[in-house]
Design a protein around this nucleic acid. Sequence first.
RNA 1: GGAGAGGUGGCCGAGCGGUUGAAGGCAGCUGCCUGCUAAGCAGUUGUAGGGGUGACUCUACCGGGGGUUCGAAUCCCCCCCUCUCCGCCA
Length: 424
Amino acid sequence: MLDIKFLKDNIETVTERLATRGTVPDLSFIKSLDEKRRALLGSVESLKQKRNTVSQEVGRLKKEGKDASSIMTDMQGVSAEIKALDAELAECDGALKTFLLELPNLPHDSVPTGRSEVDNVEVRAWGKPKEFGFVPKEHTEIATALGILDFDAASKLSGARFSLLKGAGALLERSLINFMLTIHTTEHGYIEVLPPFMVKESACLGTGQLPKFGEDLFKIEGWDHYLIPTAEVPVTNIHAEEVLSVGNLPIKYTAFTPCFRKEAGSYGKDVKGLIRLHQFNKVELVKFADPAKSYDELESLVSNAEEILKRLKLPYRVVNLCTGDIGFSAAKTYDLEVWLPGQATYREISSCSNFEDFQARRANIRFKPEGGGKNRFVHTLNGSGLAVGRTLVAIVENYQNEDGTITVPEALRPYMNGLEKIQR
RNA sequence: GGAGAGGUGGCCGAGCGGUUGAAGGCAGCUGCCUGCUAAGCAGUUGUAGGGGUGACUCUACCGGGGGUUCGAAUCCCCCCCUCUCCGCCA
């Protein structure tokens, strides 16, 4: 959510900057709506002041045993008027809030301007795609043949876009989770969190999934709860409605959770394999930062996620998403894209963003600045560290051998009971 | 699921229809004092929003939302959460 004060004083700038994202909002009415609101507020507050003083007067008269019935009757009218104005004011506030909740974040100055993913800018690349002495296969083919992935069983149980891992496949997924969490907690200083996988509507409003993107969420029938689409939602909202002390910043959490997404509108995209599922595992990194330092924190968050790929020796590149491709709540996003030899392409495996105070304002997460003064909103950041299923895909494809086996990356072996090779 | 108790300021805790933004205590801050010394005394300390260049001032906030009333932290209704006991259960 953008700051209404900033917005109404900078309508043209805001419009221009939002336009670079591809949405051209009509902000013209904001100013008049805000003026209307302030006018209403002024009159209702002076009426309330009148009511307060007269009510005290009534109390005093009654105490003295005098008659107050005529002013009491007068005040009935005043109260009715207050009620009507309050209702009008609430309507005004509601309209403003609804509008603000559906307005995306402003892109940071360092975000390249562009319309779609083709305008994203590669920042750096690490590792060289391996040369295979044979034609590398896609993960589905390899893993299915090895009996560690069973899509037939998954679709019998749950339909399309679900997966079922077996044997060494399930072990690989579990080991990856453990591996990532261990590095982030013991080397990168994150506190591990295991949050609920269902959250209330307010949490989804806080991080920006609602009200606009409800069609992507699974809602529990007959209940005000949603399956989390990412750990970002429960973990960021841990500190909703709180005032943190600046000395504790940055607060860094890492969390493993499954993620549930409807993927509505993605029909035909990535239909094969483990790339796009209704349920997938992810290890998430979340930070609450001092606004002055949040962009440094974004860089270190990205490097924390990169470290996982480096340890696994998986080639990747870092991409600075352009204005047309960053998410609704983000001010700036780096994607990590891992090389997939079976598809001969880089695929997104992590997305790391600084949301600045966009989420903090929604979730009301503040901090007391150094030396006191008014409470301010923190900056929130998060990133995948990493998407576990896609990491498994990358390992299967990058570590495949001509004979159909998969070599286990060295860094992972301690987590897999020393297993060096996955074979039938 | 059944029965009960409760949700008040940074924390503890009073208030239960009328100067109560809220006693008292703790904690914090500021002075003063200083041979009763891990002390004493005095003052002060919330958030959000509106108006004013400003000193300042007004409004709202006692879990959330409605209602009754001239007036609600206090009464009524609905909801949420926490705790205790019972039942069920991994």
